[in-house]
């Protein structure tokens, strides 16, 4: 597959995502946020970082970057879009996913290995996982407390759109332990943890590859 890895001013996980995808034999290109076309790609990654310095709200300014119109069209076409950390925040601000990521309940920036339960394995993003699997991915954020009104949370649960939950300690106070959700069509995933930082044994874990491999198997 050919992936676009979007780069906003302040994005910092872009090279890690490129490394992880190329390591799995894919093509991955960093795409500057002023691009207006994504038609040549099979998947789009919104990496972590601090786009626009997190000013106003995390992801609030990035949402108006020129590439975002192309991203909306890309998402509507059914191809996979994956946002991690700041990428998740941008997807929520852009309205491609519901809810918002608030300041961690602890007021602490949390940078630690985190266990996650995989809630379903029949999705395009988790097909390579085993039912009931627990994966371990790094988290690194100060604003990852997932919030949405109760009726939105119920809709997410009823439609099976919660793909990942924090297992064990909830590191940020996210409602219903939500760590990652998809859009109604199931082709846009946002999650706070960083699979690209668990994609090589040298980094202490390779569980991130379950997500990359799932995407490649489903959409490749």
């Amino acid at each position: 597959m050919r992936f676009a890895v979007l780069v906003f001013p302040g994005t910092w996980s872009d090279w890690d995502c490129v490394y992880a995808l190329e390591d799995l034999g894919q093509t991955a290109e960093r795409v500057w946020h002023r691009e207006t076309a994504l038609d040549d790609y099979d998947g789009v990654i919104l990496p972590g970082g601090f786009s626009y310095g997190d000013h106003l709200r995390c992801g609030a300014i990035a949402r108006f970057s020129p590439v975002m119109s192309a991203l909306e069209r890309f998402a509507a076409s059914g191809k996979p879009v994956f946002g991690s950390c700041n990428g998740f925040q941008i997807l929520c601000e852009a309205g491609l996913l519901p809810g918002v990521l608030q300041r961690n309940a602890s007021m602490q920036f949390r940078c630690q290995p985190q266990q996650l339960s995989v809630e379903r394995v029949d999705s395009g993003f988790t097909g390579a996982c085993e039912p009931g699997q627990i994966v371990q991915l790094p988290i690194s954020h100060g604003e990852g407390q997932y919030f949405a009104p109760p009726q939105v949370l119920d809709e997410l649960e009823d439609a099976g759109r919660v793909l990942f939950r924090y297992h064990g300690e909830n590191p940020n106070g996210s409602l219903r332990d939500i760590a990652g959700i998809v859009n109604p069509a199931g082709n846009v995933l946002g999650m706070m943890p960083h699979p690209e930082r668990a994609s090589d044994a040298l980094l202490g874990g390779t569980d991130g590859n379950y997500i990359w491999r799932s995407i490649i198997e489903h959409w490749g």
Partner: peptide
């Protein structure tokens, strides 16, 4: 209705 960690701190 929204929790305010900053206010609590």
């Amino acid at each position: 209705t929204v929790n305010d960690p900053q206010g609590l701190a």
